[in-house]
Design a protein around this nucleic acid. Sequence first.
RNA 1: GCCUGGGUAGUAUAGCCAGGUCUAGUAUCGGCGGCUGUCGCCCGCCGGACCCGGGUUCAAAUCCCGGCCCAGGCGCCA
Length: 439
Amino acid sequence: MGEVNSSTVPGRIPAGSLSPQLDGKEGYVLGWVHEVRDLGHLIFVVLRDGTGLCQVSIKVADTPEEVVRRVRGITNESVVKVWGRVTREPKARAGVEFKGREVEVISRTERTVPYDVTGKVDAKLDTRLDHRILDLRRPENRAIFLIGDTVLSACRSFLRERGFIEVRTPRIIATATEGGAALFEVNYFDRRAYLAQSPQLYKEELVTVFERVFEIGPFFRAEESNTTVHINEFTSIDIEAAFADYNEVMEVLEKLMVHVYQRVIDERGRELSLLNLNIRVPQLPFMRVTYDEALEYLREVGMEKRWGEDLSVRDMRALTSKYDGFYFITDFPTVTKPFYIKPRDGKPEVSESFDLVHGWLELASGGSRISERSLLERRIVDSGLNPASFQHHLDIYDYGMPPHAGWGLGYERLLMIITNRMNVREATLFPRDRTRLTP
RNA sequence: GCCUGGGUAGUAUAGCCAGGUCUAGUAUCGGCGGCUGUCGCCCGCCGGACCCGGGUUCAAAUCCCGGCCCAGGCGCCA
């Protein structure tokens, strides 16, 4: 409380809070030295903290010699505390600045900063990732992950409101969960174990307990991919719902996208404009394109495909000339999908499956699941996997398994799309890829 | 894993095709000095680099071979 007091009692003033309305407020600012402009009798220090940037000005004539010497010795990215007063100042571009009186250097940068935080000189993504913490200090890069914070928060609140329970499943597992993607091996007390590639089987089992569950967490794929959209440790937003089919969970997903965009627009206006983004809430419902329709279009543009083949990146790029923004591709051939996806009753070569696509990029994948043990066992065998290694999972199906459906959504890819980044690594704090294991 | 293009100061680039004039240019950065309103401040001086290994040649940053690494595209995959 006490708006009156806060302007008279000295205390910390967030850099991002400076405005001409705070004219005369005494206190101190704390943060990192973004840059220094020394004009001789007047020194400007641009200071950056968790809330933004502010300009500190120091008049040499009005400042003790010792303090001036300290300011002249400041290096970029040092942490400093400056006492002074917020002052309305028409000569400052922001219309306000912080007149500094006394300066304390809390932590001095002793070496040349290996990366330009102010952005005056470009750096390659690889260099930026080598110095990721410095890179993240750039306001533009911070903004990406502030938006990411809202995305995660929006997903949690949206799903919880709809009765989904947040769960955590193991990252360390004994056997391959899905086949498909390659797994990383870990040594588990002299036994062989693996890092989970998805929560798939666990979340299916958990619908027999909670009916609706979701999980947001890291998963691992040992694929030697070398693209702008694959990383080996990624964050999956997964849901699974009992007594639902793929159409119902598709609806949850598209409504979630609308909710996420709305929350980002509502809460992150500052970050969006910093990134020059003008995003709009997507229109419902998203277009549903069946696999057969996609094939038909590809045939029209001279890219004929055999039915049963998966869609390639080239195919997906071709589809962007007809389908824009978010859309679903549905009803994939059963052979292109993992064993747990449900084949259509009466037409088992087609599966009750879908991908959520934005442009040419796959963001999410889901479907109705098999809920009958004998069929699941048969599909495991058909997929070239050994049913014996799924014994625990299969046994669950003997004790009351409802029909269910779900999906998994790639968080970094979604953030990449929202923030219009060209490389998923830019939407990952510390990306892990084929060659990068540090920092 | 494949194809194409790359690797020059801390960072980003010029130079390479047409080998010598490169003691390797520029910006930023760091150091020093100057400057009263900057906001990519400005001005002067100084500092700092040819990815690694082999080869061709009188001479290699420049040409050739191998390796490592990077970007984009593709594959795998989500």
